[in-house]
């Protein structure tokens, strides 16, 4: 019975006995950096949720599960922010959220890499995060960054696919203030 086994393993993995579970606290941010006409611009997602289970000593049981409400994107430019929800970019009427979930963690050159799958605008593709984790009293701070190609997910389609005006590479970075679940 495969589905049952799956469910059981999920329960097993998310058990607080195996890894430290955290909730996302105040001061957590999720941002991205793109380029337009040769200049970098920064954006923020004001609305996102993250379920984090992480113990540096037990990477095998770590997991990140992040849901982003794409309508909350803000880049500080009215024209751009009015374009982002449209079908050429996020197409939020059809795909209101993006979802990232880790598949495994590995160490590489002293750094922790979280491998996962990003589901964005109807496309699921592997995305790797570089993880920096620092425990503190009552919780931890977690910084992650990833580089992805916007065209892999059809962000900026049609005329907007022109990478000489809108750069293909987008850096995504998050800073999470984690609070221990008790």
């Amino acid at each position: 019975m495969k589905p049952v086994a799956c469910l059981l393993s999920l329960l097993f993995l998310s058990s607080p006995l195996l890894a430290a579970d955290y909730t996302m606290g105040k001061g957590s941010t999720l941002g991205f950096t793109g380029t337009f006409q040769g200049e970098a611009f920064k954006g923020r997602f004001g609305d996102f949720q993250a379920k984090i289970s992480y113990d540096p000593a037990d990477l095998a049981s770590a997991s990140f599960d992040v849901t982003v409400h794409l309508a909350s994107a803000n880049t500080g430019d009215t024209d751009r922010d009015e374009s982002l929800p449209g079908s050429d970019f996020f197409n939020i009427t059809k795909f209101p959220t993006a979802h990232f979930v880790t598949t495994r963690f590995r160490e590489e050159g002293g750094k922790v890499i979280a491998e996962g799958t990003l589901d964005l605008k109807g496309v699921s593709k592997p995305v790797n995060l570089e993880v920096t984790f620092a425990p503190r009293e009552g919780g931890a701070t977690l910084d992650v960054s990833a580089r992805l190609n916007r065209l892999d997910f059809g962000i900026g389609s049609g005329d907007f696919a022109d990478t000489s005006t809108i750069g293909a590479e987008v850096t995504v970075n998050a800073h999470l203030e984690l609070e221990s679940k008790t």
Partner: peptide, 9 residues
């Protein structure tokens, strides 16, 4: 941004 014929900013 201000770019001169996509050459430099």
């Amino acid at each position: 941004p201000l770019q001169f014929f996509k050459l430099f900013n």
